[in-house]
Simulated scan of single mutants.
Amino acid sequence: MITNELQERVSGWFAGRLPAEWQPATVTIDREEITVVLTIPDVEVEGTDAARAEARAGRASAFREETRERRMEIAQEAQHRFERTVSWGVAVGERHELWTHVAAPVMTRLRQPQRLVLDTLVDAGVARSRADAVAWCVRLVGQHEGDWLAELRQAMDSVAEVRAKGPAA
């Protein structure tokens, strides 16, 4: 479980380590990975939404190339310090890109009714495989149950705090 203390330590370290012009950054962590999404200034482009989208894509691409060495140096330091892979992304206006990220395998055992759900998604062309269908379902739950998941995480943090106050084993 990722505690609030660990999230604060990691976020604080990146706030102190990242150059000021790369701030604000959003730092998200799990058991395997730290994802740092940098917010860079939006583009000033007149014209269609398509032109603006392409300008944002160009700005993101240029930023990625211009900052690669420095990002890799910072990532290497963080990986040694926190024992997690560091992944990077950028937000430019409404455009959000992840450049690198971990796709961690997850094993599960499903009974036939659950497998039939996955097979229906595959057969309908919603997903390419059962694994893709599981990922699709997880994204859907994350989108529609965000408040509930946030409340659940907060409750888990409270349990961790109570455990920490208890007797040592």
Rank of each mutant, 00 (worst) to 15 (best):
E5W: 07
E5N: 06
E5H: 06
L6M: 13
L6D: 10
L6Y: 04
S11A: 15
W13D: 10
F14Y: 11
R17P: 04
P19E: 12
A20V: 11
A20H: 09
E21G: 03
E21Q: 13
P24A: 08
P24K: 02
T26D: 13
T26K: 12
V27Q: 04
T28P: 04
D30V: 01
R31L: 11
I34Q: 06
L38R: 10
T39Q: 15
D42C: 03
V43A: 09
V43I: 08
V45Y: 08
V45T: 15
V45P: 06
E46M: 11
A50E: 12
A50T: 10
A53Q: 12
R56C: 10
A57P: 01
A57Q: 13
G58E: 15
R59H: 10
R59L: 12
A60Y: 06
A62T: 10
E66C: 05
R70P: 01
I74K: 00
H80E: 15
H80W: 09
H80L: 11
F82C: 08
F82S: 08
E83K: 12
E83R: 14
R84K: 13
S87P: 09
W88A: 00
W88F: 12
G89A: 07
V90N: 06
A91E: 12
V92W: 07
G93M: 06
E94Y: 10
L98F: 10
W99L: 02
V102H: 05
A103C: 05
A103N: 12
A104C: 03
P105Q: 04
V106W: 06
M107E: 14
R109L: 07
L110E: 03
L110F: 14
P113M: 02
P113Q: 01
R115W: 09
L118D: 04
L118V: 03
D119N: 13
L121A: 12
L121G: 01
V122W: 07
A127I: 00
R130S: 09
A131S: 15
A135P: 00
A135S: 15
W136F: 15
C137I: 00
V138I: 14
R139A: 06
H144N: 12
E145S: 10
E145K: 10
E145V: 00
G146N: 00
W148F: 11
A150Q: 09
E151M: 03
L152Q: 12
Q154I: 03
A155H: 11
M156Q: 14
M156P: 01
S158M: 09
R163M: 10
A164R: 13
A164I: 00
A169V: 06
A169L: 09
A169M: 06
A169N: 09
A169F: 11
